[in-house]
Design a binder for these strands. Structure first.
Lengths: 252, 252
DNA sequence: GAACTACCTTGACTCAAATCAAGGCTGCAT
DNA sequence: ATGCAGCCTTGATTTGAGTCAAGGTAGTTC
């Protein structure tokens, strides 16, 4: 059975081969997420000039690796990315999933080395923002400087959310929270909040949430039995948002 | 039995009532940790001018609370602080411990509201750095701007370390890692790396590491039995650094 | 210095998630 | 179409940390 991916027509199509190289920040339909600046059009043009748009990454291709020299941060334009660290004993800790309009790579600033690796979960296009140019432009444009401080701060609060989730919540609550997070982020980019395709594997979800694959799989089965979700491999349909919120144990 | 607190004379005395209000950034002995800038003395003076030094906080007094308006970031001058969030069901998640020279409050930038609360673990003095002034100064001083980006990035990598610890490591490994982290940070400020007094309670340690008090206590007992640490309430003496590293399971 | 409180430790028991094991799907390559 | 490899699911069993319970210790107040 086939499921429609998006309910909002052709806003952002998560299929390969539709990557518009001519897009610029001024007309990018993600700029309300990516750069919610009250930028003067002149400012946008300056920003646009420093941004490099390269050819799309294929699934499982790396954007950068832990230890690489840090030169740029990246905005996801289409597709999805994961950031992860490899622990001393070789296991993988996923530190974040990044969807269109979201920025990654900021952990590399502190040491001029990327502190994590970034890999495409599916065919993905990114905008590269060279950091030295961004710094110079920030010094000249107070709103941009402010905005970038805010982006970094948001990464910190997101990490703290995850810390709390890992430290205090059960397997059910963790998976439910992730589903709600993806749902919310989808609706921000005008995609369906209730129906979507997960770009990551169960292993990735487990590595993000501090759970094993088996546990993630069991939670999905449980949610399906409770008629909170319909799960068909990577296709997710949220049947009962309130039930999901209750399962996530989030205060509302 | 009494234990000397510091091995380096009167560098930083963790006892109350020795707080020098006349300190400025130029002569502060923490500036190699707090602001490792190759700042011109003129630059230091400008920075110094925006920094406010208020009277010390008493133990368990709040510096700010979750939801307060964000106005400033803070540098710890003496004592120790903890940052924490309260979960929807009233439990506490400690997101970080902050020692002299370390900066806290950066999670408030994203929403202009503090995303966590900060409380003194013992009598503590802080330097308040008003954020709007810092922004203005950053736009004028590239090294300061760069430095502040790096500080925020460091907070991100620290959070990612904690995420990995919570997600992948056993109780033994978590407690051992925290002891090593405190040891390292102590030696950076010329204090003993092997002997120190924990400013936080077992409950705080548990809330930071995602463990219960009982588990933290049992780990300390185990470490003592293995002659890795000597634990006398809050006094810690590391007897076997290599054993501790092995227990933390950190690659070297 | 007695009493109180907050903090810490230890033991016995329980339970949620990990581990171990096996089998089923899916989609790609031949 | 067939075979293969990676991914996902389900069941049985184990285990590390949580929970419950009780008692000890240190520091503070009166």
């Amino acid at each position: 059975m086939t499921v429609r991916l998006a309910d909002a027509g052709d806003h952002i199509v998560l299929k390969p081969c539709i990557h518009d190289y001519q897009v610029n920040c001024g007309n990018c339909r993600l700029n309300s997420i990516c750069l919610p600046l009250a930028l003067e059009s002149d400012d946008i043009e300056q920003l646009d000039n420093i941004i490099q748009r390269s050819k799309p990454l294929q699934k499982s291709q790396h954007l950068y690796r832990e230890g690489d020299e840090f030169k740029s941060v990246f905005a996801v334009r289409s597709g999805a990315m994961k950031a992860y660290k490899t622990t001393d004993d070789g296991r993988e800790q996923v530190t974040g999933f990044y969807f269109p309009g979201e920025i990654l790579g900021m952990d590399g600033i502190s040491n001029n080395l990327h502190a994590s690796s970034a890999k495409a979960l599916e065919t993905a296009a990114v905008c590269e923002i060279p950091f030295t140019s961004l710094e110079k432009l920030s010094a000249m444009m107070p709103t941009l400087q402010r905005h970038f401080f805010q982006l970094m701060s948001r990464e910190i609060t997101a990490d703290q959310q995850l810390i709390t989730l890992l430290s205090k919540n059960s397997a059910d609550e963790r998976v439910a929270s992730l589903m709600l997070s993806i749902s919310t982020r989808n609706s921000k980019r005008k995609l369906s909040a209730t129906q979507f395709r997960l770009p990551m594997s169960r292993v990735d979800i487990g590595n993000y949430l501090g759970l094993t694959v088996e546990t993630v799989s069991r939670v999905f089965s449980r949610m399906q039995k409770l008629e909170i979700l319909r799960v068909d491999n990577k296709e997710i349909k949220i049947l009962d948002v309130q039930g999901l919120q209750k399962m996530a144990n989030v205060g509302d």
